[in-house]
C-alpha cells in the first residue's frame, strides 16, 4: 500500500446531539503494518472549533500548525474568536490552495456557534470540498466501519452523556475491525459552556 492516505492509519468521527456535539479519534500512528506510536492524537482545538485530521501523519502535523497560525492571525485582525462555520471555510480554502499537489488528509470539523448556540459538524475531501451533515461525519482508514456503526447507533437529539456513549461505541467497534486504527481513543463532548475531554481505554492490538 503506497496510498499516502493509508500509510499511517487513523480514524475520526463527529456527531451532533441536542445542543451538543462530540468528536472522537483513535491514537495510532503506524508505518504500514508496524505501529510506531500509541500517543498520536488527531484532534486539535482552535477557540471553540475542533478539527480532526486523518491521513498522512506529516500532513496532519503540518496542517495543525498552519491552522494554528491562521486562526491566531484571524484573532489579531478581528479581535474575536473564530466560529466553527468560518473555520470550516478557512480549512476549505487552505486545502484548495494546494489543488494540484494536495495534503493527503481527511479533515472533520466540529463545534458550537457561540452566537446562535447551534451545533455544527462537517467533513472535507483532501482538496477542501465541504460535506455538511446534520447527523454525523466520519473520516480515516476505518470510515466504512464507522459509517456502519454510526448509521445504526446514532439517533436525533441525544443528550451529552448519551452522545458520549454513542460516539465511543461507534469509534471503538469500528477501529477493532481496522488494522490501521486503534490503540486508544480520545472523545470531546462539547456543549455551549463546557468541554469534556475523555480518554478511552481500548484493546491494544
Amino acid at each position: 500500500m503506497s496510498d499516502p492516505s493509508s500509510i499511517n492509519g487513523g480514524s475520526i468521527v463527529a456527531m451532533a446531539g441536542k445542543d451538543c456535539v462530540a468528536i472522537a479519534c483513535d491514537m495510532r500512528l503506524g508505518m504500514q503494518a508496524l505501529t510506531v506510536s500509541n500517543d498520536f492524537p488527531k484532534i486539535f482545538q482552535y477557540n471553540n472549533s475542533f478539527i480532526g485530521l486523518t491521513g498522512l501523519g506529516t500532513d496532519v502535523t503540518t496542517l495543525s500548525e498552519v491552522f494554528r497560525y491562521k486562526v491566531n492571525m484571524y484573532n489579531l485582525r478581528e479581535e474575536r474568536d473564530i466560529e466553527p462555520e468560518t473555520f470550516a471555510n478557512l480549512v476549505s480554502t487552505t486545502l484548495y490552495e494546494k489543488r494540484f499537489g494536495p495534503y493527503f488528509v481527511g479533515p472533520v470539523v466540529a463545534g458550537i456557534n457561540s452566537k446562535s448556540g447551534k451545533p455544527y459538524i462537517c467533513g472535507f475531501d483532501l482538496i477542501g470540498c465541504i460535506n455538511f451533515a446534520k447527523d454525523f461525519v466520519v473520516g480515516g482508514t476505518s470510515s466504512h466501519q464507522l459509517f456502519g456503526m454510526c448509521e445504526s447507533l446514532w439517533e436525533p437529539d441525544l443528550e451529552p452523556e448519551d452522545l458520549f456513549e454513542t460516539i465511543s461505541q461507534a469509534l471503538m467497534n469500528a477501529q477493532d475491525r481496522d488494522a490501521l486504527s486503534g490503540w486508544g481513543g480520545i472523545v470531546y463532548v462539547i456543549t455551549k459552556d463546557k468541554i469534556v475531554k475523555r480518554l478511552l481505554k481500548t484493546r491494544q492490538d
Binding site: F147, G148, S152, D176
Partner: peptide, 8 residues
C-alpha cells in the same frame, strides 16, 4: 465492512 463491527 459496515455490518461486521455492528454485529461485534
Amino acid at each position: 465492512s459496515l455490518i461486521m463491527p455492528f454485529l461485534d
